[in-house]
Amino acid sequence: MAGFGDPHLSTVEAGGLTLGIVAARWHHELVDHMVARAQAAARACGVTEVMVSRVAGSVEIPVVAQALAEVCDAVVALGVVIRGETSHYEYVCDSVTSGLTRVALDAHTPVGQGVLTVESLGQARDRAGLEDSIEDKGWASTVAALGAALAIREIHKA
Rank of each mutant, 00 (worst) to 15 (best):
H156D: 15
A42V: 07
H156T: 09
A144T: 05
A128F: 01
A128D: 01
V31Q: 01
Y89V: 03
A148D: 09
A67S: 15
L19R: 03
R127I: 03
S95A: 15
L121M: 13
V22I: 06
Q113T: 01
T101P: 00
A144N: 01
D136E: 00
G84V: 10
P110I: 01
E131W: 13
G122D: 15
T117K: 08
E131M: 12
T97P: 00
A2P: 01
A24H: 09
A74D: 06
R127M: 13
I134G: 11
E154K: 14
S87H: 12
C72W: 04
Y89I: 04
H28L: 12
T142G: 04
V31R: 04
V81E: 04
S95H: 13
I155D: 12
L68R: 06
D94Q: 13
R102V: 00
I61G: 02
R153G: 05
I82K: 13
V50M: 04
A36P: 03
G84M: 15
S95K: 10
V63P: 03
D6C: 09
R83W: 09
W26P: 03
L146N: 02
C45I: 09
L19P: 03
A2W: 12
R125S: 08
E13V: 01
R125P: 03
I152W: 10
R54Q: 15
L68A: 03
R43I: 08
L30E: 02
L9Y: 09
S58T: 07
M34P: 06
D126C: 02
A65V: 02
R37Q: 11
H88N: 10
M34R: 05
M34I: 04
V22R: 03
D6M: 09
Y91D: 10
V47N: 06
P62R: 12
L100E: 03
A77I: 06
V96N: 04
A74P: 07
L17I: 08
E135L: 09
S120N: 14
T109P: 01
T48V: 14
Y89S: 08
V50R: 06
H27N: 14
A38M: 00
V118Y: 07
A77P: 04
Q39G: 10
P62L: 14
P7F: 12
A145E: 01
V75R: 05
K157H: 15
V35P: 02
I82H: 13
S87Y: 13
E13F: 11
V52R: 07
A41E: 10
E119Y: 15
L150M: 12
R127N: 09
A23S: 09
W26N: 02
V47K: 08
K157A: 14
A148G: 08
S53K: 14
A148Y: 11
A144Y: 05
L130D: 08
L30P: 00
A36G: 12
C93W: 07
D136W: 00
A158M: 14
H28M: 10
V75W: 00
I61N: 05
V80M: 05
I21T: 00
E90H: 13
E60W: 11
